[in-house]
Nucleic acid binder design. Structure first.
Length: 553
RNA sequence: UGGGAUAUAGUGUAAUGGUAACACACUAGACUUUGACUCUGGUAUUGUAGGUUCGAGCCCUGCUAUCCCAGCCA
C-alpha cells in the first residue's frame, strides 16, 4: 500500500497505536480470512489489498486463515487455488497460514467457559420453533431454555460433542439480550450439530462453531489487532465485541468494516460464479471471461494492474459501484508501459504493392516498445504481398478517415509509405485486394522529401505470416446488473463475450492467443497471449481497432 | 416497521471550521511511425430545509433517499 495514501481505516489505526491508545507499541496485525468454498475474484483482491496492504503500511503482518467452520460448504480443492492467487498478486503470509478449524478445541473450551459463567446455555428449540420464538421488530424473542442450570447445559453440551443427539436437536446459545433491536444479539446460536465430514477434521467433530463465535476467537488467538471486514458485518460488531470481552481470549482485536467492491454489470457473487461453472457456461473458474483472479490472469491482467486498481478505487464506507472501464484503464496503463508489441491482422485483406518487384524480400527493424527503446527491436519481413486489416481500406472514405482509400498515402509501419491506387473486387462487388504503390525513397517509414502522412497502418508479410485462430475474451457482463434482481442474471449475460477470429494473420506464432477483450478495450489497442502459462510474455497490439461508427459521426 | 450504516461531478475517492482537489469517463484541441500513447483546456456552489459561526462539504436539528441485517451461512 502506498505510503502516501490514507483512508479512514488508517485513521482508526493511527489512533489505536498512538501513545495511550489500546494498541500503543504493538505491531499492527491483520488477517485475510476467505472461506474455502470457491475461487477468489476481483472483489477479494480489494480485501486482500486492504488486509495485506494495511499490514505492510504499518510494518505489521497479515495472516492467511481459511475460515472453515461450516463443513457443509467447504472443500480442500479451493485452498491451494486461494494461496496461488494471493501469491500471484504479490502478497506473502510467511509462515502465518492457518485454518479456523485448527482452533476447534480451543473454541470449544471457550464455549464451556461461557456456559460456566452463565453466559451461554443449551437450547432445545427446533429450527422451526427457533424462528417462531425469535420475535419481530416490536416483540422480543422468547427462549424457554434460557435458565437451564449451568451444570445441565454443560452436560448437554458435552453430550452434543459426544454425538448423542441428532442434528437440530440442540444448539448452544449466548445469553445476551432477547429484546435487542439487533437480532444478532437475541441470544445468538454459538454451536450447531452437523454430522458432515469436515474437509480437514474428518469426523472428529459433530458440533461446529458459528462464524460469530469462531471469528473473534480466531482473531484473538492469532493476535490480530485489526480485523478488517466488509460492511455487512457492522451489525455483528456488538456480538464480536461481546465474545472478545466475555471469553478469556489472549488479545482484544478490533473489527473495522469497509464497503466491498462492486463493479457494474459484473457478476461478483461466489454463488453466481459457481453457477456459471456448474452450468457449463464457462470452462471453469479460470475461464478468461470470469472476474476471478485466475480468470483475469488468463485474460492478460497483470498483478500490478489489479493492485493499481485496488489502490485507486480507495477505501470508504459508502457502498459503491466502480465502472468496469476503470479496471481496463489500469491494465492498459500497465501494459502500455511494459508489454512487447507485435503486429497482427485480425480481419485480413490482401494489400499488393504493385511497383514492388515480384520475388523481392527485405527486412526492417521495428522497436518492441516505442516507450522503451532499450527493449530492443525485432526483424519483420516485407514483400510485394501483405495483409492489412480490412477496415484500413475504404473505397469511399468517410469524413476524417485517414487510412487507405484511392489516392491517399499512408505509412506501412516500419517499412515504407505507400499510396493507394485502387482495389480488386469479386463478382459480388466485395473488395478482395487493395492495390498501392510504394515510395522506394521512404525506407523505414519516412519519405525523403519530408512530406507527412496522416496515418500509419499495421500489416503482416504474406510470405511469412502465421495463420492463427484468435480468441477475444470479454468480461462476462450481465445487463441489467446481476444484483438488480430484475431478471435472472444468466439470461442477461453478454453473448459475445467470446469472439473467435479465424484466419488471422500474425507476425509470429502466438499459440493460444487470447485477446482481452471488450470492443472498447480493443479500440484502445491491446491484446495478450493466454496467460494460463504465466511465463508467456504480454504482447500489445498497438493499433486502434476503432468502431466503424466512430468514423461516421 | 426494529436495528445498523451511508449521502461530494456520469463513476470512484480527497479536502478533519478557511480558494471543493485527484483519477476514470466524456468533450475540444495539440502532438504522434497507427485515430493509441502523451500533453493542454472544459464539465459540481457537496441529498434537502433550517440553525451555530466572520466563515460550514465538515458542527447542530428536522426531512428525504439508498444500502445492510432479521440462517442452526460466512
Amino acid at each position: 500500500m502506498d505510503e502516501n495514501t490514507s483512508n479512514f481505516i488508517h485513521d482508526f489505526i493511527d489512533e489505536d497505536i498512538a501513545e495511550g491508545g489500546p494498541y500503543a507499541g504493538k505491531t499492527v496485525h491483520t488477517r485475510f480470512p476467505p472461506e474455502p468454498n470457491g475461487y477468489l475474484h476481483i472483489g477479494h483482491a480489494k480485501a486482500i489489498y486492504i488486509d495485506f496492504g494495511t499490514a505492510q503500511k504499518y510494518g505489521g503482518v497479515c495472516n492467511l486463515r481459511m475460515d472453515d467452520t461450516n463443513p457443509a460448504k467447504e472443500d480442500t480443492e479451493f485452498v491451494d487455488a486461494i494461496k496461488e492467487d494471493i501469491h500471484w498478486l504479490g502478497f506473502d503470509w510467511g509462515d502465518r497460514f492457518f485454518y479456523g478449524s485448527d482452533y476447534f478445541e480451543q473454541t470449544y473450551a471457550y464455549a464451556e467457559e461461557l456456559i460456566k459463567k452463565g453466559l451461554a446455555y443449551v437450547c432445545g428449540l427446533t429450527p422451526e420453533e427457533f424462528r417462531e420464538y425469535r420475535g419481530d421488530t416490536s416483540t422480543p424473542a422468547r427462549s424457554p431454555y434460557r435458565d437451564r442450570p449451568v451444570e445441565e447445559s454443560l452436560d448437554l453440551f458435552r453430550r452434543m460433542r459426544a454425538g448423542e443427539f441428532p442434528e437440530g436437536k440442540y444448539t448452544l446459545r449466548a445469553k445476551i439480550d432477547l429484546a435487542s433491536g439487533n437480532f444478532n444479539m437475541r441470544d445468538p446460536v454459538l454451536y450447531r450439530i452437523r454430522y458432515i465430514e469436515h474437509h480437514r477434521q474428518g469426523t472428529k467433530w459433530c458440533i461446529f462453531p458459528m462464524y460469530d463465535f469462531a471469528h473473534p476467537i480466531q482473531d484473538a488467538i492469532e493476535g490480530v489487532t485489526h480485523s478488517l471486514c466488509s460492511l455487512e458485518y457492522e451489525d455483528h460488531r456488538p456480538l464480536y465485541n461481546w465474545v472478545v470481552e466475555n471469553v478469556s481470549v489472549p488479545s482484544k482485536p478490533r473489527q473495522i468494516e469497509f464497503a466491498r467492491l462492486g463493479i457494474n454489470h459484473t457478476v461478483m457473487s461466489k454463488r453466481k460464479l459457481r453457477k456459471l461453472v456448474e452450468d457449463g457456461r464457462v470452462s471453469g473458474w479460470d475461464d478468461p471471461r470470469m472476474p476471478t483472479i485466475c480468470g483475469l490472469r488468463r485474460r492478460g491482467y497483470t498483478p500490478q494492474a489489479i493492485l493499481s486498481f485496488c489502490e485507486r478505487i480507495g477505501v470508504a464506507k459508502m457502498p459503491s459501484t466502480v465502472e468496469y472501464g476503470f479496471l481496463e484503464h489500469c491494465l492498459r496503463e500497465d501494459l502500455n508501459e511494459k508489454a512487447t508489441r507485435v503486429m497482427a491482422v485480425l480481419e485480413p485483406i490482401k494489400l499488393t504493392i504493385t511497383n514492388y518487384p515480384e520475388g523481392k524480400a527485405e527486412t526492417f527493424m521495428v522497436e518492441n516498445n516505442p516507450n522503451h527503446l532499450e527493449d530492443g527491436q525485432r526483424e519483420v519481413s516485407f514483400s510485394r504481398n501483405l495483409y492489412i486489416e480490412a477496415e484500413d481500406f475504404m473505397e469511399v472514405p468517410s469524413p476524417k478517415y485517414f487510412r487507405l482509400f484511392p489516392g491517399n498515402e499512408v505509412r506501412i509501419k516500419g517499412a515504407y509509405v505507400a499510396k493507394c491506387t485502387g482495389c480488386v473486387k469479386d463478382e459480388n462487388g466485395n473488395v478482395t485486394e487493395v492495390l498501392a504503390e510504394y515510395d522506394p525513397e521512404s525506407a523505414g517509414g519516412d519519405p525523403k522529401d519530408g512530406r507527412k502522412v496522416k496515418s500509419t497502418i499495421h500489416w503482416v508479410d504474406a510470405n511469412t505470416a502465421v495463420d492463427a485462430e484468435v480468441r477475444i475474451y470479454d468480461n462476462l457482463f450481465s445487463d441489467p446488473d446481476p444484483d438488480s434482481g430484475e431478471k435472472d442474471f444468466l439470461t442477461c449475460l453478454n453473448s459475445d463475450s467470446l469472439r473467435i477470429h479465424s484466419g488471422c494473420k500474425l507476425e509470429k506464432s502466438l499459440e493460444n492467443a487470447v485477446f482481452p477483450h471488450s470492443y472498447q478495450f480493443m479500440r484502445k489497442g491491446y491484446f495478450c497471449v493466454d496467460n494460463r502459462d504465466s511465463s508467456k510474455e504480454h504482447l500489445v497490439f498497438n493499433r486502434s481497432v476503432a468502431l466503424k461508427d466512430s468514423f461516421n459521426k
